[in-house]
Each structure stands twice: as structure tokens, then as C-alpha cells.
Design a protein around this nucleic acid. Structure first.
Lengths: 185, 185
DNA sequence: CCAATCGTTCAATAATTATTTAACAAATTG
DNA sequence: CAATTTGTTAAATAATTATTGAACGATTGG
């Protein structure tokens, strides 16, 4: 992804808006690093500075983009728990706020991604290890093939260990213990 | 990114190759999650199973893709330290190996990404905080504008704390202390 | 209960990214 | 040192993803 050329954000009027723009760009670049659409990252940045809950209409105005795209964007942010929808509405319109605590945002974003990774890999490992083991155990498997299967199995067992460790890591991340030495909140 | 339809991998001949294919697909999906080109992720998977060093030619044959693209792919893997180039060559051809220790691969991949994030964000914060502070200190700043700037400054200071914490986290990640409880190596 | 409006989805289009082909410089062998 | 051969890059093309506009059901306010 890349800085979109369509629907460019409105030009900074004050110096403060210019500063915000720089931080928003850095945030969007950062999120882009992890596979998040650059524009969706920008929206996070805008919501980060906007202290009040925002409507889709407001987002549309800030980003100069279609409401449709804002709908997709805000949903993506909600999926990775970087934003949330409020229960209240403002004259029929849904309201959304960004998670402005970077520590919590980090926790949510990575925990979500890592958990998805674990689920995908565990799914594949669980599907492959049993029949691979079976092949090794079968009498009519050639000696050469058995040797190759054993090597693969060894690698997959290493992967299982890794993903068990990673699951503990994610649990710890969610528990908050890594944030114990933090300064501020 | 998405499973490429061009240059599809050769069909599995043995059951073992089919199993490998499933794991390779899961690995590629996983890397895709973090913004890595799916095909490049597949290449990592192939190198992961191939125990010997590989040449570009070999990669080309395994993936049914151009040597050019394999050159790009292997470089991306090297950049995130998931693979490395050997000093030796095999009849003029460069040799590459994948990092097969998932713990080390994790360490490298995330440390690289997170460090890039820290650098981008610190760059923006360092560029913005001093002039923003200056604006607040200036006499001819309106009361309203000063209030808004102060709110922004507060948020950015929180971000600085976060990135200081994240830098310590990355240092710890690189030191290996998070892997102390691991089972296997 | 009707008219307006919100948010979502689908299909179309625009924009970006992935991949290839071709050209080239560096290295190497005979 | 000439002829190959390698790996990289640039430009062109193919494929995918992002964004929009329009259509629709749901909701709500009159």
C-alpha cells in the first residue's frame, strides 16, 4: 500500500494541523508496515487526535473520501480493536472512538494478529502431523520416503513447540505483564 | 495480497509433498498477515523444508516463477533476516538458506519490523514536539490555540513514553530473554 | 405508516502492487 | 581477453486491492 493520491486530506490551515499531519502520516506508515491500508491508518490518526466520538460523516469530511470507504475503514479498525463503536448515537448517526492509549492499542493490535497467525498455523499443523506420522508408521512406505517424512515431522514438531510458546506469549501480552515497567497511562 | 494465480507451484507428486504444500500455504498466509507478499512467504516455506542451500535457479524451478522475481523475493527475506546468503557459491551461483529455527525467525522478523516502526514514529515525534512546544510558549499564540496545542502535546508525550517502552521491548526481544521458557531448539 | 436518512453491500472503476521480459554490468572460465 | 553466465534493475504487463457510486434494507422521526 501507499499514500493514496485520491481523496487527499484537506490542507493544514494552522501550524498545529500541519504537525498533526506529520504524526498522522507516521502512524499510517507504521500501520502500513503491518499490512493495514494506509488510508485506514490515516483514519486512526485522525480519530486519535479528535478527542470526541466521530460519525462516518465526520470521517468522510476529514478524509475527503466516500462514506462507503469510511465504513470499511472503521470496521477494519474495530476488527483489530484500535477503535470501537459507542452504544449511543448522535442524531441517528453511529459514533466511533479510537483507542488513544498506545499501550492498549499495541496490545490489541498484536494480540489479534498473533492469535490469527497461531490459529492458521495450528490448523495446518493439526491437519498434517497425524497423517504424516501415519505414513511413517505404515509398512509399505519406502525407506527413503520414511526418512524424508521423518525429517519433515521433526521440523513440524519444532513448529508446534514454537506455536505453543507463542500462545503463551500472546496470553501474557493480553494479561498486561509486559507493561509493568511503563511510565504513563 | 492473495494467493497468486500466476506461476503456480508444481502439483504435489507424493503425499509428503501435499503435506508440505499445506504448511507452506499456512506459512505464506501468516506472512501475508504482516504485509509480506504471499509468494515471498511461499518461498520461505520452500526454503524451510529444503534443508540444503538453494540457488535462484532452484527457487525458480520450485515456484515456477521468473528468476527476477526470485531475486526480489530472496532479498525481501534477507531484509527481514528470515534467510541469508552464504559466502560460498555453487558453480558461479549464489546460495541461500532459510532460518529454520522459528524462534530466531520470529525474533528477527518482529525485531526488524518493530524497529522500523520505532524509527518512523520517533522521527515524526522528534520533528514535531519541539516546534509544538515552542508554539505553546510563544506570547502571541491565542489562548484557544494554546489549549489545543497543549492537548496534542500531552498525547505526543504519551506516545514518546510508549515508544521508549517499545524500544526496551525490542531490545529484550533481541536479547532472547522471552525465549527462556522454551522447550526445544 | 410514510418519507427521510443511515450504514452496508455489490459491482464498477481507479490505483497500486506483483510479476515478467529484456537489457546490462560484473564476474568467471577457458 | 572473449564468451558465457549470473544477479540486478528498469520498463512493461498482469493481477490484485482500494475506492467509489448506486442500490437496498433497516431504522427512526414526524
Amino acid at each position: 500500500m501507499k499514500k493514496a493520491t485520491s481523496g487527499k486530506m484537506k490542507k493544514p490551515a494552522t501550524q498545529r494541523e500541519e504537525f498533526r499531519g506529520k504524526i498522522i502520516d507516521a502512524l499510517a506508515q507504521t500501520m502500513d508496515l503491518y499490512g493495514v491500508n494506509y488510508s485506514f491508518g490515516q483514519l486512526y490518526g485522525i480519530m486519535f487526535f479528535e478527542d470526541k466520538p466521530m460519525t462516518l460523516e465526520k470521517m468522510q469530511a476529514s478524509m475527503n473520501m466516500s462514506k462507503s470507504n469510511m465504513s470499511y475503514a472503521v470496521r477494519a479498525l474495530i476488527d483489530s480493536k484500535m477503535a470501537s463503536k459507542l452504544k449511543e448515537k448522535e442524531e441517528r448517526k453511529d459514533l466511533y472512538v479510537a483507542e488513544t492509549d498506545f499501550f492498549k492499542a499495541f496490545q490489541s493490535f498484536f494480540a489479534t494478529k498473533l492469535q490469527r497467525e497461531i490459529d492458521v498455523m495450528r490448523g495446518a499443523l493439526d491437519a498434517v502431523i497425524p497423517p504424516l506420522s501415519e505414513t511413517i508408521l505404515e509398512l509399505n512406505t519406502t525407506e527413503e520416503e520414511r526418512k524424508l517424512c521423518l525429517e519433515d515431522l521433526h521440523k513440524l514438531k519444532h513448529a508446534v513447540n514454537y506455536y505453543e510458546w507463542l500462545q503463551r506469549f500472546v496470553n501474557d501480552l493480553q494479561s498486561g505483564i509486559y507493561f509493568e515497567g511503563r511510565q504513563d497511562g
